[in-house]
Design a protein around this nucleic acid. Structure first.
Length: 587
RNA sequence: GCCUCUGUAGCUCAGUCGGUAGAGCACAUCCAUGGUAAGGAUGGGGUCAUCGGUUCAAAUCCGUUCGGAGGCUCCA
């Protein structure tokens, strides 16, 4: 959330005004095509605008063409856009055949000024502001993008309207830039790259939203998991493993069956008990904690698990790796005494930031969510000290942060960390979350210095969130051109011709022995085709070997960036690759 | 879940007015022995997602079911 200068702020406002006016033009264009259309709302949004309509039939791509032409016509007719303030009664009369507008008017507060904007013979209820006339709109710099269903006021019990999404800029060049950006996003789509690089798949027939990691994706995941485990041990965590299913009393005790049941897979009955697939790992970690009496000397417990959980997400929300039904959380629970809390929070935040930065996410912001109004568990004083600890930790790291007052869950305050990726999109990955509920429900205790049993603090945290989702985000962030340490194939060995297959095979074996993920391409293709193949696979290093290399026992490297490094001994080449791996660098 | 679009070879897609299916890539075999982004030839491969209906005849038209894609209050 970088602060915008007032000049930039003004520019954005101007753009939003222009887009909002464009939305009116679109509504006018739709009414030309469907005079009986009922219009709903049409705001400017981040990269454009939309307008919702209730139409006699569903829109097609061809309709967008017609509407688009209508809009160009309206703009060229050069209408003024004029404001008029009217009484409530007049407004209701004017929009008598527009039920959505009537609803809006009736909901406006008593003292609100009701304003209309006229654009030719189109009049819309609108707060404004707008551009003075349509000459301020560029007929070459907008594009209708898509048709989507949208519930009136986002309420699934209300009618489904048709929404037209569009984008608009002041200048056709900027429109083109934006469209190119959308094109680039498509190219980086992790579902596409996952297929191209043979990383993972999903199978509708075997269960929607369940991920299959192929060998190449598996290599990447092992690289990430190994790094993750090493860092957790270095940072004072223990790693635990817990079952995938548990009896119903666990979920009754945790409250999941009361509040979370519809997101859980149905139970399976075994020996007259119901077993549920876990949607979260917490109750299992608590089982470990509650095994034996704990002393203050045992605390803090920092227990991490790459725990695979199952959640029954609605079918319409599933999306590639980023929204799935079975996924592996990089979960941890920190159980500590009240005295230890401040230090633990500081550390967990520092560690999380380090983790995200290791994957090239340098643009990180924090969001603190505090105690909601109404029913919460836990003492108010505990909430306050927890919130204070979270805030201090954020400030100590010098992070930009926002506060979502009252945005916490009923069981505790939290920090969410969001990263901005290379395409400027924000993703929420890490979360650090207090829980005043489960320690109570599971009667977790520790014996303090005074010999009395007390309630420990418990904090949930995930750094990458879900490994599956994180991979989706990471693939798109890198656009499939991974740093060397993550690349599924780090080096591709390519002989110039079959005469050098043996030499290539020897080099390949040594690369593998040195711990480098190397492949050899001894197929019948010409070298050019092999290079092209390695290049499209975005393999960081190509070892191209022929007579020149064989005679001197050396190697020549082509990087995927097109750089040529010739005349290295194999040992030098191995050292070069290993250095880049260790540095988590690009080739 | 709901709305719109959509489902044809492993992948990307074409298939006109309803007349029983095609391309490129990939794969296999052979030829070619090659120096930094696709050498050539031949061949195998499809219950046109599913179930049902209309029809002399369905990939094509209609309905069902199951998937996939884009959306579903950044407030008149």
């Amino acid at each position: 959330m970088a602060e915008l200068s007032s000049k930039e702020q003004k520019k954005l406002e101007k753009l939003a005004t222009m887009r909002h006016s464009m939305a009116h033009v679109m509504a006018a264009g739709v009414l030309k095509l469907f005079p009986e259309a009922k219009i709903a709302i049409g705001p400017a949004i981040e990269n454009g605008f939309y307008y919702d309509f209730d139409l006699p039939r569903s829109l097609s791509e061809e309709d967008l063409e017609v509407i688009s032409e209508n809009m160009k016509g309206i703009i060229r007719e050069n209408h003024p856009i004029e404001r008029e303030e009217v009484s409530r009664a007049k407004a209701l009369e004017l929009f008598a055949d527009q039920p959505y507008k009537v609803e809006l008017i009736n909901e406006l507060p008593e003292d609100e000024v009701i304003s209309l904007y006229h654009l030719g013979d189109f009049t819309d209820l609108c707060r404004g502001p707008h551009v003075e006339d349509t000459s301020r709109l560029n007929p070459q710099a907008f594009k209708l993008l898509s048709i989507a269903g949208a519930y009136w006021r986002g309420d699934e019990k209300r009618p489904m309207l048709q929404r037209i999404y569009a984008t608009a800029f002041g200048d056709p060049k900027l429109l083109k830039e934006h469209l190119d950006h959308l094109e680039e996003l498509k190219k980086r789509d992790h579902r596409r790259i996952g297929k191209e690089q043979d990383l993972f798949s999903l199978h509708e027939d075997a269960g929607p939203g369940l991920v299959y990691w192929h060998p190449k994706g598996g290599r990447m995941r092992v690289a990430v998991e190994n790094f993750w485990r090493e860092e957790h041990y270095k940072n004072g965590y223990e790693i635990v493993f817990t079952p995938h299913v548990g009896k119903s009393w666990l979920w009754e005790t945790s409250g999941h069956l009361d509040f979370y049941k519809e997101s859980m897979y149905n139970p399976m009955e075994m020996d007259k008990s119901d077993y549920y697939c876990k949607p979260m790992n917490c109750p299992f970690h608590i089982m470990i904690y509650n095994e034996g009496k704990k002393s203050y000397r045992d605390l803090p417990c920092r227990w991490a698990e790459l725990g695979t959980v199952y959640r029954y997400e609605k079918s319409g929300t599933l999306h590639g790796l980023t929204r799935v039904r079975g996924f592996t959380q990089d979960d941890a629970h920190i159980i500590c005494t009240p005295d230890q809390m401040d230090g633990e929070i500081t550390e967990v935040l520092r560690f999380s930031l380090y983790m995200l930065k290791s994957f090239g996410f340098d643009n990180i912001s924090a969001y603190l969510s505090t105690r909601p109004e109404g029913k919460c568990v836990g003492d108010v004083s505990d909430w306050e000290s927890a919130q204070e600890a979270l805030k201090k930790a954020i400030e100590k790291e010098g992070l930009e942060y926002g506060i979502d007052e009252g945005g916490g869950a009923f069981y505790g305050p939290k920090i969410d960390l969001k990263v901005k990726d290379s395409m400027g999109r924000e993703w929420q990955l890490s979360t650090i979350q207090f829980d005043f509920n489960l320690p109570e429900r599971f009667n977790m205790t520790f014996v303090d210095t005074d010999g009395r049993e007390k309630r420990p603090f418990m904090v949930h945290r995930a750094q990458l969130g879900s490994l599956d989702r994180f991979f989706g985000v990471m693939i798109e962030n890198y656009g499939g051109a991974f740093p060397v340490w993550l690349s599924p194939v780090q080096a591709q060995v390519i002989p110039v011709g079959h005469n050098f297959d043996d030499y290539a095979d020897g080099v390949w074996k040594k690369l593998r022995a040195a711990g480098i993920r190397a492949e050899k391409d001894l197929g019948d293709d010409r070298m050019n085709a092999k290079i092209r193949e390695a290049q499209t696979q975005k393999i960081p290093y190509m070892f191209v070997l022929g007579a020149n290399e064989q005679e001197e026992g050396k190697v020549s490297i082509r990087t995927r960036t097109g750089e040529q490094i010739n005349g290295l001994t194999l040992d030098e080449a191995i050292a070069l690759v290993q250095e880049k791996i260790a540095a988590k660098a690009m080739p």
